[in-house]
Structure formats: structure tokens, C-alpha cells
Amino acid sequence: MQPLTKLNSRVVALPLNDIDTDQIIPARFLKVTDKADLAANLFADWRFTADGSPRPDFVLNQPQSRGAQLLFAGNNFGCGSSREHAPWALTGFGFRVVVATSFGDIFRNNALKNGLLPVRVDADTHQKMREVLEENPQGEWSLDLEAQSLSLPGGLTVHFDVDPFSKTCLMRGTDELGYLLSFMDQILAYEQAHGKQVGA
């Protein structure tokens, strides 16, 4: 996992509510056995016409989206299916941060395991950020994960919550399995104490 500490980036605006993981990556692209190439079909049904050509009116096809690492969404982003292919497709495209007023629980967990930071803001803050974005769609926003802040053009700085464990994992680029494996003695002890050992 790539560490995430600071970044400056333009922002892709997709401020719709309830964007589900079927939109992020439709099920027909889940037949893969690896994580590569999913980005090519990120938001496939919004991004491409029936014959596969890009829809010029969809934001990801517009020049300002190229290289953007920040996605600005609406409420309940990533609801629906548990498919981790959704964060794989988003990070494959280059996104490292998604801003929303809330996230689907499973998506949020999956995002954090892939170096994708879900930034949750309240509705008023979201509205202010949206106004900045509408005024200055090309402007770069700056993330400082250590300070837990996003700085927007024009002076708006937004502070957000992130739990200490996830923050450390993101900043170091470490994944959680190593941490889990360090508890093997306790896991064995739990199994013995609860009659859950092999063969019990």
C-alpha cells in the first residue's frame, strides 16, 4: 500500500447521493481473478456509451479529471455491494481521497485497506466545499493527513476525523494483516478458552 501523507490535486466533482458500488464498477467486470485493469471500467455505465465511446459530458472524461486524486461525492458514497473491486478501480484510476457526508460501511473499510482515504464532512461543510468547487473547478485542494485537514482555494480549511489506527496505517502504508498476525498467541488462547480449537 502506498503511504498517504500529503497531496495537492484537482478535484473530480460527482456530488450525487447514494452512489452504489454497482455504479463504481458494474458486476460484469467482476469476473477477474486479480486487481489490475479495473480502473478502465470505473463508472463504466456513466462513462461510456453503448458502443464503448466516452461520453463527453461525464466528468471523468473531461480534461480536468486527468490525474486528479480527489473525488467529491454526495451522501452515502459506496453503498451496496461489498465488492473491493470498487476501491481497486478508484485507486487504479489515481484517486487517494473521497469526500462525502457519509460512506457505506463496507466500502469505507475496503477503502482504508487500499490507501484510499474516506473524508467525512457534515452537510454544511459539504455545501461550502461544493460552492468553492463550483467557483473554481480547476483549483487544487491540499490534503495534510497528519493535520487531518483539507485546504481549499480561497482559504477554506476543513478538519476531518480519522481514527488513530487507520491514520497510522495510511501514513505508513502498512496493511492490517501484519497487525492481526501479531496476535496469534491470543487467538490460540481464545480458541482454547472457548472450546473452538481444531477438532473441538
Binding site: E84, K113, D175, L177, L181
Partner: peptide, 11 residues
């Protein structure tokens, strides 16, 4: 998600 599937398989 799949990362967690791996976590449970392993631990």
C-alpha cells in the same frame, strides 16, 4: 471485502 476475506482466512 476481499482484504478482510484474506484476514479471516489467515487468522
Amino acid at each position: 471485502g476481499t482484504s478482510e476475506v484474506e484476514h479471516v482466512l489467515a487468522t
